[in-house]
Structures are given as structure tokens and as C-alpha cells.
Simulated assay, not measured.
Amino acid sequence: MTILFKNAVFIFLLPVTLLVSCKEPTERPTEKKVSGPVAWKTYRGVNIGCNIEEDDVADLAISGANLMRLSMPMCTLMNLEPPYALQQNAFQKLDSVLYWAEKHQLSVLIDPHRYPGTKHQWTMLGNDPFWQDFKWHNILIRFWSELAERYADRGNVIAGYDLLNEPEIPIDLKKGSPRDVGLLYAKLTKAIREKDSVHTIVYALPRVYDSVTKKMMGYHKGINLIEIPQDDNRCIETHTYFPKEFTHQNIWEPGDPIPYPSTLNNVEWNKTQLEREQQQLIEFSKDHPNTPILVGEFSCPRWTGEDGLEYLKDVIDIAEKYGWSWAYHSYREASVWDAEMSITDRNDSLRTTNAPRWKLLKDYFKKNDGVR
């Protein structure tokens, strides 16, 4: 999930509507074994929450999507309080989603999203206890070691392991400290590879902030500040929520609509600027053609109408231009982003298969025919 910065104050976006189900499933996953690496392929899909049920998965499969990034902050896989035990009901839900995905020929990117030592449900903060003490890292290492052992033998129904959601680091990052995301990634990679040598490890790029000016930079800016492990089966993840003035407009309170394209703070925001904003990641992608890139989240409020459609199209077209995978945020999780609802009336929550935003996404999902 993403955050909005308003007058240098952190404001967090919570789902408008979210129903969570962590009940024990009635169906159990199959146990298909694998004998070699599960290579990352080109994915075009969506983010989902643990409120998802099989009917939703079946409908998504019909749409042509081939990936579900399963985020579980509302149904955490690990208890956030001592003794930090694994949550069996949450793992049962994960097992059910894997079963449904396998049945309907979709892949799942496992995104636990939240861990002990983090304060907010939807994102990581630079002042989280998690970044102050290595003890939180050790808890996470144990968690991923156990998860990797549990799912090492599952086939390509698992697209990969998404280690962190939106880590946040200072621009003057001190290497070797608890804030060193690259060091944490190296430790997590070692622990996972001792148990699972086949599934892709996804490394999320961090938001970068200047503690003096309070300026926050996008995730793609972090590519040159951390050391990404040189794993043979890795993927780099970024999120695209810029300009925030457009992507998060009028969510909490009414206001004048902000168009796209538009000029904001003396910057002309259009497709050219969206591409320019990601230049560091684009250069990395060119220099590392064997390392896939995932735009793990991107969106804007559904009531932004035709402007919202143009924005989404521009974000996707840039990803397609460079051969990146992408996952729209989000599918049947929160009304604000729901692509199957009206693109003009925020009070109209009726889902239709021919909603303009959903039709746009399905047109791009058609590209999955050759890779599913």
C-alpha cells in the first residue's frame, strides 16, 4: 500500500471497503513437486488481499490476468507480538489461494506485507522499530526460512517471494546498520536459498528520504543506494504513485479534481515525465537484462474518469516498453481502486464486466496469451 505526504506529515491510505476472511479453508492445496528453478516470466496482473475467495480468483482468470500479488497485512502470517509465532489460520488462507490459483492457472506472488517491529498496517516507515535493532531482522530471517521450507517444493503457482513492502531509508544510509536494506536482503537470501533454490526472490526498492529537507523520493530512486544480492533468480520491484497530487486526490475529503496530464509544482506531468522520473531504474534494467522488473503497485482513484484511464495506460505502456511485469492495485479489495466500478461516481459501487477501467486492464491482459 502507498502513502501520501501532505505538509510534511505522513498520511496513510486505508482501504475504503475491506472484508477479511481468515477462516480455515475447506479445500487443501495440491502438492506438485518441482525439480528445477521456477523462472520469472512476464506477468500482468493485480494485487489482492486476504479477503479473496475462489469465485474472485475464477473471475480474474477469465479476465486474462496471470498474476496475483497476495498482500496479507490484514491477516498476518506471523503474530506481531511475542513470541512471534506463525499464524496457522493465515497460512491456511495462503494455502487455499495457492490451490485456487493452481486450479485456475494463475500464479501467486507471496507478499506478507507486515512484520513484527513495524507500526503501520500498509507500509514500512523510516522510524519503525524494525530499522533500529537487528533483533527484528533476525525474527524476519527465521520467518522466511520457515516459509521457504514450507513452499520449496511447490511449482510455478508461486511466482516468487516478495520480501519487504515499501521499505524506507535515509539518503545518507549507513552501511552495516539496521537501516541497511541491502544487508538485510543478503541475509534473507542466504536463509531462503538454504531451503528453497527454485523460486524467484523479489527485492522491493526503498523509498528514499532526506532527513534534513524532509523530501521524499520515489522507490525507483533507491536502485543506486542499496546492494541487491547477486542471486541467479531475482526480480526488482518498484511502485508507481506519482505525482501524489493526482494518484491520491480527494480520497479523504472533497476537493477540486486534478487533471492528468497537468502541471504541478512547475512540473508538467505526462507520459514523458513519468518515464523520466524512472530513469535510474530504466538504466539499471538496460544494464541488467537478465534481472526482471516488477511494477508491483500502481493506481489512482477510480473516480478520476478518463484522466485516470490515460494515467494507467501511460504507466502500463512504459512498463511494456521495457519488458517489465506489472500488478494493478487492486482487485476487489477497496472501493477507491476497484476497476470494475464506475470511473466517475465514487458512490456507485456496482461492479460490471464492461467498466471502462476493467476493460482497459483486460485489453492489456490479452498479451498474456503467449506466456500463461
Rank of each mutant, 00 (worst) to 15 (best):
E194S: 12
L163K: 03
K174L: 12
T200G: 02
K195D: 03
I192L: 11
E168W: 12
D153T: 14
A159D: 01
K195Q: 12
H199G: 09
P178A: 09
V198I: 11
I171Q: 09
L188Y: 06
S177A: 06
R179T: 13
E168V: 11
D180R: 10
K187M: 08
Y185S: 04
T200H: 00
A204G: 07
R150I: 11
E168I: 06
D196P: 08
K195H: 02
I169C: 05
A148I: 04
Y151S: 05
A159M: 01
R179H: 14
E168T: 14
P167M: 00
I158N: 00
T200C: 10
G176A: 04
A159W: 05
N165S: 15
I169R: 01
E168R: 13
A186R: 09
E149F: 12
K174R: 13
L188S: 03
E166I: 07
K174Q: 14
R179E: 15
T189V: 14
G176Q: 01
A191Y: 04
K175N: 08
K190Q: 10
G182Y: 06
L188Q: 00
K195T: 04
I201Q: 01
G160P: 09
V157I: 07
I169Y: 03
G155D: 13
A159E: 00
G176P: 05
L183G: 10
V181L: 13
L163D: 05
R193C: 07
L188N: 01
K195N: 11
V181M: 07
Y161G: 15
E194R: 09
L163G: 06
D172Q: 14
V202D: 00
G155W: 00
P178E: 00
R150A: 15
D180C: 09
E194P: 13
Y151L: 12
E166S: 09
V202A: 05
D180T: 10
K190Y: 08
